[in-house]
Design a protein around this nucleic acid. Structure first.
Length: 469
RNA sequence: GGCGCUGUAGCCAAGUGGCUUAAGGCGAAGGUCUGCAAAACCUUUAUUCGUCGGUUCGAAUCCGACCGGCGCCUCCA
């Protein structure tokens, strides 16, 4: 049984899909006005792992991740650079796609864009208007939060507390400072669409309500996003969708903790960010994913290079085992099949993931597994290929297909014939030198290869090599 | 002011009443192996879970107070 912490109930709840085996899931994606930073990457990666695990469990997941492609920030950027806002959106949508691909994030089922759903958005606003939840002031349409009695149920806030807070902007036009824009009247030079209220564009919150309804239905299973979206964005989505459709909106709300720098939230406005694309220049996607996987998705994670290094270092254990196994499989020698509790490890991995996607614990299971396998290899003279295939299968299933912290599918050096042959030639020469006890030459070859990024490893009968970063 | 999260070894981080007199990763120390390395393996590295009280046969885990860190309430993953 899978348990998920639900922000709405503030409890871990058993996950029961509305229409098994189908699962409908929505994630509030980026506003495409800039490259995304490593903090954004954390939630993209974590929702990816959650999605992969649900698929592993046999669910058919429809995963929608929206792209906000019309918005104040995009317009601002376009004005600064004196280009069309649509070009800004297009450029950074492409950059987004490229970066998530590099992070080995599985593509979502669909990436709905706000600008492609203007008619659905207008339709929903009209419904809200006809039901008395919206009011129009001179082409600006607002949501009347006082009309929605459950306002605040997700964030645990109540309207009166919010009103007395000094930070809520006072806008003379609105009935209540908390009322938010559904439709924004176009200012000169801004992109606009025609609507019953005049030319304008959608507010930020309404797009998610309209698009999730269109693609996932009026009520769906999982809605996720960063913790900073709980209020007001997700609260407003609930208000819009439930008022318009008259139905319960979402069953499980999931929220991701922040990535901090020096214990402070990484954000564009604070300027304390590194883009994912920059970090990918120095670290592999696997290392980055490993770092994220090693802490729970809901908690904070203080980001440092040192931690990334330690994640990368940890992965070497998995890489080394892979190299060892490849060697054995290449030899294809018969041997005994040792007793090994594969099912037990699989079970523990699942139990960890079933407990609100406890990835740190799941990774611990993988490391325990690797340690046990290494022991078996050390204490047996000959082992059957069958055993190694099972080891590989476990790692491919858990570490690769679910967590994405290793990638066995990558074509490594061993697939490049000429290089491999040359390296093996050098290895043979070195073997000869070693036999003649010419260690000076042997070390010279090893050192030289190492400088080219090839690490040698001697064992009793032979020398193996692997490419390092 | 309101709401919420958080404090576990040198660093990161699970565990949230007995199966844990606290997983896993990094780092550090010693050992086995090796021509030397590397890798792997073994051993060591928190009698203790922010502090002080309380509940309980039993608490890191529940309750209370206090101290510290962070977030949201304004765009933000």
């Amino acid at each position: 049984m899978l348990y998920i912490y639900n922000t709405l109930s503030k409890k871990k709840e058993e996950f029961i899909p509305i229409d098994p085996p189908n699962v409908k899931m929505y994630f509030c994606g980026p506003t495409v006005y800039d490259f995304f930073h490593i903090g954004n990457a954390r939630s993209f990666v974590m929702i990816d792992i959650i999605r992969r695990y649900l698929e592993y469990k046999g669910y058919k997941v429809t995963f929608a991740m929206n792209l906000t492609d019309v918005d104040d920030k995009i317009i601002k950027k376009a004005n600064q650079e004196n280009i069309d806002p649509a070009i800004v959106a297009e450029t950074f949508t492409e950059a987004f796609m490229e970066d998530i691909r590099k992070l080995k994030i599985k593509p979502a089922s669909l990436y709905p864009k706000a600008t492609a759903h203007i008619s659905e958005i207008i339709h929903m606003i009209k419904m809200l208007e006809s039901k008395g939840y919206a009011y129009n002031i001179d082409g600006n349409v607002f949501y009347d939060v006082k009309k929605f009695s459950n306002y605040g149920k997700l964030s645990g806030k109540n309207i009166d507390d919010l009103e007395s807070g000094s930070r809520v902007e006072i806008n003379e036009e609105k009935k209540n400072p908390l009322d938010f824009s559904l439709w924004k009247k176009a200012k000169p030079g801004e992109p606009y669409w025609e609507s019953p209220w005049g030319n304008g564009r959608p507010g930020w919150h309404i797009e998610c309500s309209a698009m999730s309804c269109k693609h996932l239905g009026e009520t769906f299973d999982i809605h996720a996003g960063g913790s900073d979206l709980i209020f007001p964005h997700h609260e407003n989505e609930i208000a819009q969708s439930e008022a318009a459709n008259g139905k319960h909106f979402v069953n499980y709300w999931m929220h991701f903790g922040f990535l901090n720098i020096n214990n402070e939230k990484m954000s564009k406005s604070l300027g304390n960010f590194s883009t994912a694309r920059d970090i990918l220049k120095y670290f592999s996607a696997e290392s980055i994913r490993m770092l994220f996987t090693q802490s729970h998705y809901a908690g904070p994670l203080n980001f440092t290079d040192e931690l990334l290094n330690s994640a990368q270092k940890g992965l070497e254990k998995l890489d080394n085992l892979k190299t060892t196994i490849d060697e054995f499989l290449k030899q294809n020698k018969p041997g005994v099949t040792p007793d090994f509790d594969f099912a037990g490890f699989q079970k523990n991995f699942e139990l960890s993931m079933d407990d609100d996607f406890n990835t740190p614990q799941a990774v611990a299971v993988i490391f325990d597994f690797v340690k046990e396998v290494n022991k078996v290899i050390l204490s047996n003279q000959s082992i059957s290929p069958d055993f190694f295939i099972k080891v590989n299968n476990f790692l491919i299933c858990t570490a690769q297909d679910i967590l994405g912290i290793i990638d066995y599918s990558e074509t490594g050096l061993s697939d490049r014939k000429l290089e491999t042959d040359l390296i093996e030639l050098l290895i043979n020469l070195r073997m000869q030198a070693k036999e003649e006890r010419n260690f000076k030459l042997a070390d010279q070859i090893r050192k030289g290869l190492n400088e080219l990024g090839i690490d040698l490893k001697d064992s009793k009968e032979k020398t193996s090599f692997k490419k390092v970063k």
